[in-house]
């Protein structure tokens, strides 16, 4: 995983596989506290206490197509390299919340990566999941949801390449507006 965008794409994949109908991606950057936090909340099937512990183990996965599960361990490693860390809270049947905290200015903090492209791909690529993307930079905030996009689209598919390009550009411009370094 070269950047945070890829981690987001990866972790959201877990939420989607857990049959979530709504996934929140909350990015917060705060220059004063020198923190970058990533929080992903879903309303999927959730995990038991024991499974949460196992989720951090690279040799645990709930899928049957392969034997390793590196998504969460890789994110954990990257967060810990910056003196940050991750926490996972979950309740069976209710959903899961994962928070990763990074020291923003730390030399080992992965770059944000192409966040606009990534969020646009997540939104277009998972048309049946309501994605709520919130990105705050100091006191400024930008929020975009699948629902409001679909409301503006009527019967045109959100997975159409032209719509995907539009969403990407819209996110890019709005993030620039609130001061996010792209």
């Amino acid at each position: 995983m070269r950047d945070l965008s890829m981690h987001i794409l990866d972790i959201v994949g877990n939420s989607v596989r857990a049959k979530s109908t709504e996934v929140k991606i909350i990015l917060m950057e705060d220059m004063d506290y020198d923190i970058l936090s990533l929080r992903i909340e879903d309303n999927g099937c959730g995990m038991s206490e024991a499974t949460i512990k196992k989720a951090m183990d690279p040799f645990f996965t709930s899928r049957k197509t392969r034997k390793v599960g590196l998504g969460i361990p890789l994110l954990q490693q990257n967060a810990e390299l910056t003196n940050g860390g991750i926490t996972i809270e979950s309740e069976i049947g209710k959903g899961t919340q994962l928070t990763a905290v990074f020291v923003r200015s730390h030399i080992d903090r992965p770059p944000l990566g192409d966040i606009a492209d990534t969020i646009a791909l997540i939104i277009s690529g998972n048309p049946n999941v309501n994605i709520i993307y919130s990105h705050s930079f100091n006191d400024e905030k930008y929020i975009l949801t699948t629902k409001e996009i679909i409301n503006s689209l009527e019967n045109v598919s959100i997975s159409h390449p032209k719509i995907n390009q539009f969403i990407k550009q819209m996110i890019e411009e709005n993030l620039e507006l609130i001061g996010v370094e792209l």
Partner: peptide, 28 residues
């Protein structure tokens, strides 16, 4: 895969091909 998906989206957009491009999990 992200670069591949972006590329496919851009290319389909450029050539005006109507398609539905979605994500799926690990196929093994």
């Amino acid at each position: 895969a992200k670069e591949t998906m972006s590329f496919i989206m851009e290319e389909l957009y450029r050539r005006k091909i109507d398609a539905v491009v979605t994500q799926t999990g690990c196929m093994g």
